[in-house]
């Protein structure tokens, strides 16, 4: 399949999700279950995407594990996104030197 078709589909779906509520909806969602589900879905998605994929993200499980541990610790202490992301990468790089 052509990469262009994939990209068009990705862009189209992503745009529509943002556009419809922004443009047409004015009322609030009433269902408590749906509201709760929508509240949790971003966390669930990011977590499922991260594990176990993060362990294979550098091509070497040892360096990836080091980066993961550093990221978890810094995130736990509330460091900004960018600090956590770059420190994880730096830690994986340093671990790769040994």
């Amino acid at each position: 399949m052509s990469t262009g078709i994939y990209i068009a589909v990705m862009a189209g779906v992503t745009y529509i999700i943002r556009m419809i509520p922004f443009t047409f909806f004015t009322k609030k969602i009433k269902s408590e279950f749906v509201r709760s589900f929508l509240h949790y879905i971003p966390y669930a998605v990011l977590s499922a995407m991260t594990l176990p994929a993060i362990l294979y993200s550098t091509g070497d499980m040892m360096t990836a594990a080091v980066g993961t541990v550093v990221a978890v610790i810094l995130a736990y202490f509330g460091c900004p996104l960018i600090v956590v992301a770059l420190a994880a990468s730096l830690a994986a790089y340093i671990a790769g030197l040994f």
Binding site: S47, T50, A71, P80, A85, A88, A92
Partner: peptide, 11 residues
């Protein structure tokens, strides 16, 4: 690992 690091920092 950068993107995954950011995901961890969000969750």
């Amino acid at each position: 690992i950068v993107l995954y690091g950011m995901f961890l920092a969000i969750i």
